[in-house]
Amino acid sequence: MHEPRDPAELLKAAAEDDQTAWDQLESRFGPRMWAVARACGLNATDAADAVQGAWLRLLENLHTIREPSGVGAWLATTTRREALLIIRKEPPGFPSFDVVHDPDPATVVLEADGSRLLWKTVSALHEPCRTLLQLVATDMGSQQVAMRLGMPVGAVGPTRIRCLEKLRTLISLQETVQ
């Protein structure tokens, strides 16, 4: 088995007309871009537009990405920006296209290779947070979550908010340590 190619190497190869490298960028970062678009609250059609828009922006900037090794984060941030433009129904092209870096830990988790870290952090949470977040991650509805955890349905929402707050604090601490 070959080692996975470095994102900077893939970007360079794509800029030199290598379709395989482009496909590998898509395999590596496409799922995360989709998650970013969905996280912004877009339906499937609009999320598809936001993701496609981000890839088209990459085509426009293939030779000018400042940090090629950070192309994954660039794609995720660009997807979020396109998603927000779609939500705000901005006319095309305005405002000017600047990628804004958001230091919020949630953004960092989703836009960096943070899935493993996130899952590890969830596993370290006390109950009911650990199970609740694992259930929520599989899109289980509030009623089913309540049944599984033996809590009233009305308590699921507030508990979820508290658990996400704990998760955010832990992730922030880990970011600080790193």
Partner: peptide, 22 residues
């Protein structure tokens, strides 16, 4: 921000995969 965390969790859990046509 909460939606971002949830999306990251879903991504890790593989419960909202990117559609093939996208």
């Amino acid at each position: 921000n909460d939606e971002y965390f949830l999306a990251a969790l879903r991504l890790a859990a593989g419960s909202d995969p990117i559609p093939g046509h996208v």
